[in-house]
Design a protein around this nucleic acid. Sequence first.
DNA 1: ACCTTATGGTTTGTATTACAAACTAGTTTG
DNA 2: CAAACTAGTTTGTAATACAAACCATAAGGT
Lengths: 105, 105
Amino acid sequence: MSEVDLRDLTEVDRLIHEPARLVITTILYTVKEADFTFLQRESGLTKGNLSSHLSKLEEAGYITIRKQFLEKKPQTLCAMTKTGRKAFEDYRDQFNQIMKHINGV
Amino acid sequence: MSEVDLRDLTEVDRLIHEPARLVITTILYTVKEADFTFLQRESGLTKGNLSSHLSKLEEAGYITIRKQFLEKKPQTLCAMTKTGRKAFEDYRDQFNQIMKHINGV
DNA sequence: ACCTTATGGTTTGTATTACAAACTAGTTTG
DNA sequence: CAAACTAGTTTGTAATACAAACCATAAGGT
């Protein structure tokens, strides 16, 4: 078993595969909730890119975005959904197989 | 050492990161030379996509494309260059680190 | 009071892309 | 000689990833 079919790679979840979002989802997978500025510091992305990547993850149902004011300043809080965690785990598992294949060359 | 900075992920070589090309380069890394139809069978890509991905890899200097006639039929032979092998190895090494990070969550 | 700067973002513009579908060129088969 | 097969390339298009411009509010400086 575990016959890794390289062709499966072309069906990898591109929403997570995209490097910027892989950074974001990896961070969000490990913390219950993270705010925009924290994510920006950790990811190194510009505000604009971070904003649009977060929107895409939200549209896909992978994260939830909650907005509030903290000490008179706007705050955007992001958290992974169950769907998002599952997608991340699937991607991780699939890519582990791929890397096993690649390393086993 | 080996402090994996997740942010480095955003600088990953997208020419190889793209799933279709990761399939192609993984195949080409293991064989000295492969023809178009073999690559198509192995990758599961359509001719059109395979053709354009190969062109991109060639433009990047990652592979060489050689054309000849075999039994009156055109044959396109692809082989990885030294540059391509290096790029593939760099990608592999970098992504192994990333996956270690992701798995170590 | 009013500029300037800082904070925390979103929207817009653009060049690149990845894919499918259409096309090309030559060959074999009926 | 027409239809179908082989081996690809080119074209059209919708989606993308990024940067740059923009917006709103708050806080300081003078």
